[in-house]
C-alpha cells in the first residue's frame, strides 16, 4: 500500500469515506434483522476501497452509474446518507420518495445516474452520459461501476465497443467480487483476468488490488485523465470480495468450494483496517486521528438512522405521482 505519496488529510478522508460506508451498511443490516426494512439490500462491505478510490479521482460535475450493490458508490460521491437511509426504509424523505429503495437510489445533484436493479443495465446509460459530454464538449467524464457478473451481459460488450470506437470519456470499473449470487465467476468464464477483455476492444485493461484504496485511486486517476483528454475509455478490473451474501437474506453457504478459508483470507485484507494499520505503522497518523473520525461518523450514522425512522411513509396518493402515462 502506497501511503507515502499522499498527504495525511487525503488518506484520512479516504478512511472516513470507507468507514462511513461500512457503518452505514452495518445499520442497514440491522434494519433487516429487526424487520424494519422492506425488501432486501445488497451490501458492499469489503469492497469499499473501489468506490472510494475511483470517486476520489472524479470532479464534482462528473457522472457515475451504479449497480444493485450501490450504497458505497453513492456515499463515495457524497450523497446525503439521511436521504439514502430514508429511501432504504421506503420513507417519503428518501431520494426517490420511497419509490426506488436500496436498489434504485438516484441522486442527480451528485451526478449519480442511478443504482440499477438489472445486472448490466446501467452500463450503456453511463456510456450515453459520456456521449453527451463528448458531443457538448463539457469536459465531464462518466464512470460505470458493475460487477464480474455484468461483464457477461451483452450491454457490457456493446457499450465498451461503442465507447472504444468513438473515444468516449468513460471509465468502466469492474468490481470482481468473484460471485454472481452463488455462481463462482471462475466456473462460468474462461478468462482469469476480466480486464483482458479490454484487449478485444482495443482499449487499456488494468488490473488493480481492489482492497487497496491507493492503488485503485492511482489507476482511476490515470484512466480519468486519459478519458478527459479525449483518448477514450479504460477498463479497470478491481479484484475484491463481498463479505456478506448476495443480499442481506443470503447466508452465502457456497463460498468454501474452492477454499475452506476463502472468506477469512479476504477479510484479512480489509481495506479499512489495512489502511489504518499502514498509516499507523508509517506514522502518517495517530490513533487519536482515527478515533476522532470514527466518533464523528458514528454520530452522523446515528442521525441518519433516526432521520429515516422518524420520516413518514409517503401518502398513498403519491403512488400515481411522477408518471405521465
Amino acid at each position: 500500500m502506497n501511503v507515502k505519496t499522499y498527504s495525511k488529510d487525503q488518506l484520512l478522508a479516504w478512511y472516513e469515506t470507507m468507514y462511513k460506508m461500512r457503518r452505514f451498511e452495518e445499520e442497514v443490516f440491522e434494519f433487516y434483522k429487526q424487520g424494519l426494512m422492506p425488501g432486501l439490500a445488497h451490501l458492499y462491505m469489503g469492497e469499499e476501497a473501489v468506490a472510494t478510490g475511483v470517486c476520489a479521482a472524479l470532479n464534482d460535475s462528473d457522472f457515475i452509474g451504479s449497480t444493485h450493490r450501490g450504497h458505497g458508490h453513492l456515499i463515495a460521491r457524497g450523497a446525503d446518507i439521511k436521504r439514502m437511509m430514508a429511501e432504504i426504509l421506503g420513507k417519503v424523505d428518501g431520494y426517490c420518495r420511497g419509490k426506488g429503495g436500496s436498489m434504485h437510489i438516484m441522486a442527480m445533484d451528485k451526478g449519480i445516474l442511478g443504482a440499477n436493479g438489472i445486472v448490466g443495465g446501467g452500463i450503456p446509460i453511463a456510456t450515453g452520459a459520456a456521449y453527451m459530454a463528448k458531443y457538448k464538449k463539457t469536459g465531464q467524464v462518466a464512470v460505470s461501476f458493475f460487477g464480474d457478473g455484468a461483464s457477461n451481459e451483452g450491454t457490457f460488450h456493446e457499450s465498451i465497443n461503442m465507447a472504444a470506437a468513438w473515444d468516449l470519456p468513460v471509465i468502466y470499473v469492474l468490481e470482481n467480487n468473484l460471485y454472481g449470487i452463488s455462481v463462482d465467476i471462475r466456473d462460468v468464464t474462461n478468462t482469469p483476468n476480466l480486464a483482458d477483455r479490454a484487449i478485444g476492444y482495443g482499449i487499456p485493461g488494468v488490473i488493480v488490488d481492489g482492497m487497496d484504496v491507493t492503488e485503485v485511486y492511482e489507476a482511476a486517476k490515470a484512466a480519468i485523465e486519459r478519458a478527459r483528454s479525449g483518448a477514450g475509455p479504460t477498463l479497470i478490473e478491481c479484484k475484491t470480495y463481498r463479505w456478506q451474501g448476495h443480499h442481506v437474506g443470503d447466508p452465502a453457504t457456497y463460498r468454501k468450494r474452492k477454499s475452506e478459508t476463502e472468506k477469512e483470507d479476504w477479510m484479512a485484507k480489509c481495506p479499512i483496517d489495512c489502511l489504518k494499520a499502514e498509516m499507523l505503522s508509517t506514522k502518517k497518523a495517530k490513533a487519536s486521528d482515527f478515533e476522532a473520525i470514527e466518533t464523528a461518523v458514528n454520530k452522523e450514522i446515528e442521525e441518519s438512522v433516526n432521520f429515516a425512522k422518524e420520516s413518514p411513509y409517503p401518502d398513498v396518493s403519491e403512488v400515481f405521482h411522477d408518471i405521465y402515462v
Binding site: 450503456p124 456510456t127 450515453g128 456521449y131
Partner: peptide, 10 residues
C-alpha cells in the same frame, strides 16, 4: 440494447 441504453443516458 447498447445504443438504446446510451439514449437513456443521453
Amino acid at each position: 440494447a447498447g445504443f438504446v441504453g446510451m439514449g437513456v443516458g443521453m
